[in-house]
């Protein structure tokens, strides 16, 4: 269970995250929503400790992870895998190596730096690619892939870390609707199948309604909404999104007709292309 206790992130004069307290049980699929600049991204990056929280604590199963450093910090980062909006793959390396970088925290430095991955690591990485139907892309350079494919590679990298929680920072914001579905389905499948905790920043309310079983709304760095998706009325959404409300809510009707997520089987069909 992830417990955030009074966390703030201050950059100069701005408080990007302001006194946030949350607790997220294992196996939850939590969506963080809010307009751009509300502090969603900073919240996730602070959990992975890419950004240092200025105040407050982060606990994982009663272990204080906000004060870790060195090896222990790297092990925490291994346990909370991160997925980025821009994928953050190493474009010039092939897909398999990109996935294997998820094994870095499991591998002694001298082996990984010479790319002497163990047979187990290679098998794990390949199995992860196979599960997302992109095993055939393994020898290709990552920057030759489409956005959707790159994001699936990034998910593989996250999976082979054997994480306890996946933090996804706007994972579908740079993808077209079809690829967005494929990626979100994959995350959902991982959540249901392995009971993996997923904390996912989403800009689109439509997707948030469709996939998450709990929504956390943020505005100006604070948590202003925390409930099941059904509790988010249009008035509440308008308040949350302010100026951006029309843009976000326009897409809502399709979300309303969508039943509770897409079955896992449909996802693999869709991604088989």
């Amino acid at each position: 269970m992830l417990v955030i206790d009074g966390m703030s992130c201050v950059f100069g004069q701005t408080r990007a995250v302001n006194n946030v307290s949350l607790s997220i049980p294992r196996g939850a699929f939590v969506g963080v929503i809010g307009r751009s600049g509300a502090g969603k991204s900073t919240l996730l990056r602070a959990l992975n400790r890419l950004v240092e929280p200025s105040e407050g604590r982060i606990h994982w199963d009663n272990e204080d992870v906000s004060s870790l450093s060195g090896r222990a910090l790297r092990d925490w980062r291994r346990r909370c895998a991160m997925i980025f909006q821009q994928f953050n793959l190493v474009g010039r390396l092939d897909v398999l190596t990109n996935v294997l970088t998820g094994r870095l925290a499991h591998t002694p430095g001298w082996r990984s730096n010479l790319k002497l991955w163990s047979a187990d690591d290679r098998a794990i990485a390949m199995a992860a690619l196979d599960q997302l139907d992109i095993a055939n892309l393994a020898p290709q350079r990552a920057d030759n892939l489409s956005g959707g494919q790159q994001q699936r590679v990034a998910i593989c990298r996250a999976l082979v870390q054997e994480p306890d929680i996946i933090l996804a920072d706007e994972p579908v914001a740079s993808l077209d609707p079809r690829n967005a579905r494929i990626v979100m389905d994959a995350l959902q499948r991982i959540n249901r199948h392995y009971g993996m905790t997923v904390l996912c920043n989403l800009h689109s309310l439509d997707l948030a309604h469709a996939y998450c079983d709990r929504l956390v709304g943020m505005a100006a760095g604070r948590v202003v909404f925390d409930d099941v998706p059904a509790a988010l009325t249009e008035a509440a959404a308008r308040e949350l999104y302010g100026m951006e409300a029309d843009e976000v809510l326009d897409a809502a009707p399709t979300g309303a007709t969508q039943p509770d997520g897409v079955p896992a089987g449909a996802a693999s069909n869709a991604s088989a292309m």
Partner: peptide
């Protein structure tokens, strides 16, 4: 981890 077992 269950993930590792599943993959292997």
């Amino acid at each position: 981890s269950p993930l590792r077992d599943a993959f292997l």
